[in-house]
Design a protein around this nucleic acid. Sequence first.
DNA 1: AGAGTGGGTCAACGCGTGTAGAGTCGGAGC
DNA 2: GCTCCGACTCTACACGCGTTGACCCACTCT
Lengths: 187, 187
Amino acid sequence: MTEPALTRAERRRRTERRILDAARELFAERGFERTTIRAVAGAAEVDPALVMQYFGNKQRLFGEAVRVARPTEPATGPDEAVEHLLGTLGVKMSLPPASLAMLRSMLTHPEAATTARESLSRQVEQVSASLPGEDARLRAALMTTIMLGLTVGHQLLELEELREASREEIVAALRPALRALAAPEAH
Amino acid sequence: MTEPALTRAERRRRTERRILDAARELFAERGFERTTIRAVAGAAEVDPALVMQYFGNKQRLFGEAVRVARPTEPATGPDEAVEHLLGTLGVKMSLPPASLAMLRSMLTHPEAATTARESLSRQVEQVSASLPGEDARLRAALMTTIMLGLTVGHQLLELEELREASREEIVAALRPALRALAAPEAH
DNA sequence: AGAGTGGGTCAACGCGTGTAGAGTCGGAGC
DNA sequence: GCTCCGACTCTACACGCGTTGACCCACTCT
């Protein structure tokens, strides 16, 4: 019938990707502890042992699932920093599953916590560089944690009060608050 | 020697409290999944079976450990709402262990998530009532999630950038941002 | 066509967990 | 002073987990 025409390497990458996608989804949904290798294998329609064969152990699977490309943009000025942060809230306010997986587990899994800290520190550094004032670092940290709180509340806790607002409404309401932190003198 | 003079009921309450304190501490530190009944019993210097006898099962133990008195203060005005939120950050920015235990597990434990949602919704409602404007509810939600992000970043993730600042510095830096949300017209 | 590689499965092990029930023992009550 | 009660412990069970090693079988290569 239809030619499968899948080389070995292709098949391998395809199932490896299926496993990784399933893992990301489950980690994002339930966190590290509540996600079992068996569940991942089931979602990927694969034997649990194959997951081990590909990724060694659960921890490494998590590490791979959570790995995400991180584009670093240069700093310009306070207003641009604010808009860049607000732009972080993608269309329909959804982060990539890999990031959600990491965030979901950051409070209960040591390695996820480390990854989250590093990622947040980078963002603080980046934002801080484009802010004026001596306490720029603290204000950048506050701006970053504001975005963190918003993401946690909206994506992970799924708070009604946030879910019933559109992205634009949230951005519009939040902008003044971030501006107040970005340029404290000019209020 | 020294009179123990502990009645049965007293002894019982004392050990029950030791268990509950140990549970709170461990839940706050490691979250629900990583905290074992055996570890709680060990920390309370008690047999694991006694924990079961007192609290029935792990879930109920968690529920008891997380239970916290919730004072509801009446709403007055936007400025008071801001100061009330800022006042939430207690001395040295530490929440009661029961609250930390709940927060630690809110992303990975369904029941903790529900409790967190309810608690946050109450706060949104309360703040919202003292804000002007039609989108008061959204702005109140944003103010609440800002505090949530700060608590998560400071208490649970222990971000350096926040830890190296004093409570007063944080309050001072954050106030304008909250004010911008509380009274959007008067900027 | 035959050998061999490698993607994939099967069955099982060891461990730690939450949990249950029988048992112990010292102080309280008559 | 004997008995009972209740705080507390001991032992064990069943289950689900991460993980392992042997195995199978289709496709590729010569």
